[in-house]
Computed example of a mutant assay.
Amino acid sequence: MQSFLKTGKLSKAEAVKTSVSQEKSKEKPKKPTPWVEKYRPRTVDDVVEQKEIVAVLKQCLSGADLPHLLFYGPPGTGKTSTIIAAARQLFGDMFRERILELNASDDRGIQVIRDKVKSFAQLTASAVRPDGKPCPPFKIVILDEADSMTHAAQAALRRTIEKETKTTRFCLICNYVSCIIPPLTSRCTKFRFKPLGEKMVRTRLELICKEEKVSCDQDALDLIVETSGGDLRRAITCLQSCARLKAGESIIREDILEVTGIIPDETIDNVLVACQGYDYKEIENCVNRILLEAHSASQVLEQLHDRIVGDLTTSDTAKSLISEKIAICNFRLLEGSSEFVQLTDLFCSMAKIYKTAKSN
Rank of each mutant, 00 (worst) to 15 (best):
E254H: 08
S250K: 12
C171I: 10
E282Y: 14
E282F: 14
D279T: 07
E284I: 14
E282S: 12
Y280M: 12
Q240H: 09
C286Y: 07
T167G: 00
V201T: 13
I236T: 02
A156G: 12
R289D: 15
Q240L: 06
L221T: 01
T267V: 15
E254K: 10
E164A: 07
K166N: 11
R233K: 05
D265N: 11
K281I: 15
K190G: 00
R233E: 05
E164L: 08
C209G: 01
V201M: 10
D255G: 02
M200P: 00
I262V: 15
G248L: 10
A155K: 10
A156H: 10
K210W: 03
N270S: 15
C275Q: 10
I252M: 08
A155H: 12
Q276P: 09
C216R: 04
L184F: 05
A152M: 11
T237C: 07
V214E: 04
I283S: 00
L143A: 00
L196S: 03
M149I: 08
D255C: 04
K213E: 13
L172I: 05
D265M: 13
I251M: 03
S148N: 14
T267Y: 12
E164Q: 08
E258Y: 12
P195Y: 04
A247R: 13
A156C: 14
V271D: 06
T185N: 02
T237M: 11
I181A: 03
I142P: 01
K163G: 02
Q218R: 11
K210T: 13
K199R: 15
T160C: 08
H151F: 11
Y278S: 08
E145I: 12
V177M: 03
G248T: 09
A243H: 05
I142E: 00
P182C: 02
R253N: 07
L205A: 03
N270D: 15
A155M: 14
T167A: 07
D279V: 12
K163A: 13
E212V: 06
